[in-house]
Amino acid sequence: MANGESIAVSFRNVSRHYGAVKAVDDVSFDIKDGEFFAMLGPSGSGKTTCLRLIAGFEQPTGGAVAIHGQDVTGIPPYDRDVNTVFQDYALFPHMTVLENVGYGLMIRKVPKAERQQRAEEMLGMVALSGFGGRKPSQLSGGQRQRVALARALVNRPSVLLLDEPLGALDLKLREQMQVELKAIQRRVGITFIYVTHDQGEALSMSDRVAVFNHGRIEQMASPAELYERPKTAFVAGFVGISNLIDGALAERLTGSAQPVSVRPEKIHLEPARVAAPADGQTVSGTISSILYLGANTRYLVALEGGGELTVLLQNRDTHFEPTQGDAVRLWWEARHLMRFAS
């Protein structure tokens, strides 16, 4: 498995411009061998273009992409040791599931018997044994997704690229596939590069996450680091709920008008009459809306002096259940206040 030191994919000052549009703009990063690496960002942020640069569907307009130390500039997709799971699965409709999975092996002239055996094995790994004779049109969305995964993995690529592979699945299936993908990645030990706009997906599966915005990387870190110590207001807002505090309130809390933020679950919510602890930062407000989510409840609190904060409380059997319009006091430990690089 990964020795942690060798680099699977490296970007050096890579740009991909389409005329005046800078889809990817001077991006540099390294992805380690065996890593589960997520590229997270809103649509049009450049994450998919980065994936296509690694696959070879796009060529950089500046900089260089290297796979295992080899500069792959000008090398077409069919000569790269990477495989892709496409967002729309891209299964060949005129072939059976087994033929789809065996396609890469057939192209590389693997003998038929071995090809079929490896394809069957791979179908077993994605829990689709016995589906080999069907056509893709006879499968459900989740099953097609697994076939696409098997078709890519059967070639034993050094890097697997996944382009929003769970985007078309419903929530339950998506969560189940997240667990399975992670397990499969551990088992095969291949570097997974995973493009998604879903922060939950990126946080739950990845070793590291790169957050993209406007063709650049805002921050690259482990999921916990990214969530607890976002470097920019954009990252704080895109990963989790933003809860941005600025203006006069920010000035009172930190002494400067630079925006700061605090995660909703770090905030304590108490009746206005209860005194706040001495080491906490305190603000007052009124409950403006309540969103009941089952395991927890999300309160939107309008702050005294403008602005609002979201507070997330677990629905334990507590003594305090505020209702809309109640005057409340919010407080949090000073270390939970997140400041951003300007």
């Binding site: 990477v82 892709t84 396609y103």
Partner: peptide, 24 residues
């Protein structure tokens, strides 16, 4: 994406044409 998938799986354009584009 079908054409990209074929080339991603190692097929040269000629093979992609013969095995994917032509049959379809």
């Amino acid at each position: 994406s079908l054409i990209e998938a074929s080339s991603d799986l190692g097929a040269h354009p000629r093979e992609t044409f013969r095995r994917v584009i032509l049959p379809l």
